[in-house]
Simulated scan of single mutants.
Amino acid sequence: MSRGRSAFRTEADRREVTLLIMIGVITILLWHSPYGAYLLYPFSILATWFHEMGHGLAAMAFGSQFERLVIFSDGSGYALYYSAEQQSRVAMASIAAAGLLGPTVAGCLLILASRKQSLTQIALLALGAALIASTLIWVRSTTGWVILPSIGAALLIIALKGRPSHKRLAVQFLGVQGCISIYRDFGYLFSEGGTLGGRQQLSDTGHIERALFLPYWFWGIVITALIAIMVLYALKRAHLR
């Protein structure tokens, strides 16, 4: 076997990696096209859910109370949490970074799960249940109430009734959406702040800058590098020797 082909386990792996890359590229192009954003609207809301759940779960890990998750109709959102004590700088920076890294972590786990049929079904069941449960526990917005349980129910149906090939495609598609969701608004990663619900807010990298002093653009570069490493690792473990 030639050296060029030996990197992939099988020809099917080569085709699958090509498909994942194509899905990612097409999704990014659609996000920035006039009507593509409407086609991908549910997945934009899902990307926001991944992002805000990253903040909320990280806050809980550092002892804070995750109170609510709000998603606006334009796809923006926020996770509200509070702590009885002053958080450390490391905790504040980690909670801010978790929103940026959370979607990629989830996406990589889904891609890895697609390698085995049993894991594929577990991933669909777990994600579907998490979407519905988180809506009941934390979500406090109409957009979230409508979109998130709908996606969750669809995933449960696919997990329980779908063909193995459909389950695999669903997991891989969702994995790609998680991995590339940062590119939906890449400028946010390298901005100090923006407008949320009509109010000026610090960006996540702006919060990291406030906690750890180095400029927001530096942390944008670090986050981008970490995302690239995670995606390459997931593809290597899932499809490469």
Rank of each mutant, 00 (worst) to 15 (best):
M1H: 07
G4E: 11
G4Y: 06
R5Q: 14
A12S: 14
R14E: 15
E16V: 05
L19M: 11
G36Q: 14
A37I: 11
A37K: 06
P42C: 14
L46S: 07
A47I: 12
A47Q: 07
W49M: 04
E52A: 02
E52H: 02
G54K: 03
A58C: 13
M60H: 06
M60W: 12
S64N: 07
Q65G: 00
E67P: 05
G75A: 02
S76R: 06
Y82T: 06
Q87V: 07
M92D: 10
A93S: 09
A97F: 08
L101V: 05
G102Q: 03
A106V: 13
C108V: 03
I111P: 05
L112P: 10
A113F: 11
R115T: 10
A129P: 01
A130P: 03
L136K: 00
L136W: 09
I137F: 13
I151R: 01
A153R: 02
L155Q: 09
G162D: 09
R163L: 15
P164S: 12
K167L: 10
A170R: 00
A170Y: 01
V171Y: 12
Q172K: 15
L174P: 07
G175A: 09
Y183N: 15
G187Y: 09
L189P: 11
L189Y: 13
T195P: 02
G198D: 13
L202E: 05
L202G: 02
G206A: 01
A211N: 04
F213D: 11
W219K: 00
W219N: 00
I221N: 03
I223F: 15
I223M: 15
I223Q: 11
A234H: 00
K236N: 04
H239Y: 15
H239G: 01
R241I: 06
